[in-house]
Nucleic acid binder design. Structure first.
Lengths: 107, 107
DNA sequence: TTGACATATTCCCATATAGGAATATATAAG
DNA sequence: CTTATATATTCCTATATGGGAATATGTCAA
């Protein structure tokens, strides 16, 4: 069985570093495909394909403006991932507490 | 260029649903490979390979006990992912605020 | 030592990439 | 209509994968 599709969910979509970079770029304001390609120093077709993946999993919104297509983040979709990781927050906090307690004991 | 390796970072490692499942299983107490295989209804070799990936990116700790190998989560490594998603929290909160404001206006 | 059990590793293969090149589509400008 | 610009899509290929089967390794028991 091959790896799950990149478009199967947000987890798979953000596994690709360049897609994370794109999301960072379009977090504050919308950007055109060309601007993104310049920023990433990547070919336009590749960027279009990454954006398609992000669109498939609902991580971006797009808007047509003349011949440009402007993309912006749809951060809401990242909550799935954020919440999943959050389930384990008490574990790493617990670990920190343990480490601190250990340090205290040494004193 | 193929997809980035599953062992390149935590993002890629947790893209696989079964690996997320494994992490959930070993979040509270350590489990043997066999127990995990039973729980996931997956072959032992597959589980061993998933665990190897998780080990490579530092998402689990392991401990040898007789002929068993017990794995437990190393949640600390998930903070990378949690924090990255957290960067966008104000965006989805902002969106919620906007949605709420919109609902208020309608009333 | 021999056998039984638990886990890891190797070999295999069908599948899905990411990126580049070429091309198609859409929209604006002259 | 024709040309230029912006983006999307198609075709291609090298590569990494997840799972199963078979096998190797490691550890305890008799």
């Amino acid at each position: 069985m091959p790896r799950a599709s990149t478009t199967s969910d947000a987890f798979n979509a953000i596994a690709e570093p360049r897609r994370r970079h794109i999301l960072e770029l379009i977090a504050d304001d919308e950007r055109s495909v060309g601007e993104i390609a310049d920023a990433l120093d990547l070919g336009q077709p590749s960027v279009s394909k990454h954006l398609q993946v992000l669109r498939d999993v609902g991580l971006v919104h797009m808007r047509r403006d003349g011949r440009q297509t402007l993309y912006r983040i749809n951060a809401e979709t990242l909550r799935t991932v954020h919440d999943w990781c959050g389930m384990f927050a008490r574990h790493w906090r617990g670990q920190l507490r343990r480490i601190k307690a250990h340090a205290e004991e040494k004193k």
